[in-house]
Design a protein around this nucleic acid. Structure first.
Lengths: 238, 238
DNA sequence: GTCTATACCCCGATAGAC
DNA sequence: GTCTATCGGGGTATAGAC
């Protein structure tokens, strides 16, 4: 009896995964705004009404894809940080760790452009993200925070300048996010985070077309400068 | 005869403008991917087939909206630069001009989020931008280049560091874009440009929700740092 | 330049048989 | 859990009358 239920649950997991895989393909072909349950069902040789047993609505499927994407890029970032941290014979300097994590995020984005667009591109009109997405969405940011914390403990930080009017905001955010770090560094980290993704988005969304060729070196240079803007000490890249 | 043709052409221009205006409303409601000629026609009290006399296909309408949006944000940037340049009793320092232009772009984006998403957000699947969009798309960038050129001539630039591997790329782009400027500054400008729009996109696309409140001051601070990263001399904002 | 009509597609979601 | 059938929409694009 329990094995039967186990088999059923296994089947359910497999079908769910197949639906999400096919939905990711449809995402690439049509975009999130036009993702349709019927098209997914058609490609899978199912009938559309059958999908409703797995995802009660189109938005629920979209939510699952969003959560998966955030988790995937979060995992990549966490892995890159761990690798840089455990590098032999010496752990990488903190600026290099920062650049490694940023580069890993960029690599994931280039490999999964439509999933990147789903989570960091324009919002899907008519879709409002439920709370389920909040946790996964913060994973990448947490990697950068942890990385900066390590640098702070090991070498201290060159605390960035902060406009006085931003002081209360910096303190509020720091209390929520990383009470052990200097508020100016936390605010600079948030700005750097947005700017890193700006570089990735411009590359991915075509703004660099016919303009920038050496995208990876440009990204690495800019990421290194951003690490320094947060206060990480170390030779600038290059 | 010529007045009749003039009247006809005037009518055509007015109807074309009405279609685009309505299309912009639909853009806000449904997003670019779902923009439909029929919905626009319905709202205007026309029949869908009539629209094809003005725009031969959905993609042509989309192109017109994209060109208009690039032109609108370009005009705002040009205006902000001119204002900062002619400020009395003294023209604004170059860092402040940079921040003013960046702030104007952000202001336009906040006021026209769907048009911003159309041009700087995820590409519309299945739509490929024709060459018509290239010119308008570069207007904002040209404003920043001109601004940096002014600063270079007036005060010189604190030429940014450049990774040696990026030197050829920097020289190639500089030759195309602004042969009179130092290549490292031009490359830094491109990176700064992407990073500015990263800040705007994160704010607009919801990544700052429940995280950053003081968005305008944060943007101004970061924009000032970016100006310095390009080499503009001047007191940092704050 | 606008109209009606049409060909030929798409979609989300549900009811009820099996 | 999957099926057929259905409700009630939506769309691009064209033909041909006026």
């Amino acid at each position: 009896m329990s094995t039967i239920r186990g088999a059923r649950e296994r089947a359910r997991i497999e079908v769910t995964a197949a639906i999400k895989d096919e939905a990711r393909k449809r995402l690439a072909a049509e975009g999130a705004a036009r993702l349709s349950l019927r098209a997914v069902a058609r490609e899978l040789g199912m009938v559309s009404s059958a999908l409703y047993r797995y995802f009660p609505s189109r938005d629920d499927l979209l939510t699952a894809l969003i959560v998966d994407a955030y988790d995937a890029v979060g995992e990549v970032a966490e892995g890159a940080r761990a690798t840089a941290e455990q590098a032999r014979p010496h752990p990488a300097p903190h600026v290099e760790r920062w650049v490694a994590v940023a580069g890993a995020v960029r690599g994931w984005a280039l490999a999964h452009p439509h999933e990147y667009a789903l989570i960091y591109g324009s919002p899907v009109p008519g879709y409002s993200a439920p709370m389920d997405t909040v946790g996964p969405a913060s994973r990448v940011g947490l990697v950068f925070i942890d990385l900066v914390r390590d640098a702070f403990r090991a070498d201290g930080l060159a605390v960035p300048r902060l406009a006085p009017e931003l002081r209360p905001e910096a303190e509020r955010i720091t209390a929520d996010l990383a009470p052990d770090l200097p508020p100016p560094a936390v605010l600079a980290l948030i700005a750097a985070w947005a700017q890193l993704f700006g570089l990735i988005s411009f590359e991915l969304f075509g703004q660099f077309n016919r303009l920038v060729e050496a995208r990876e070196p440009l990204f690495r240079q800019a990421a290194g400068e951003l690490a320094r803007s947060v206060g990480l000490r170390g030779t600038p890249v290059g």
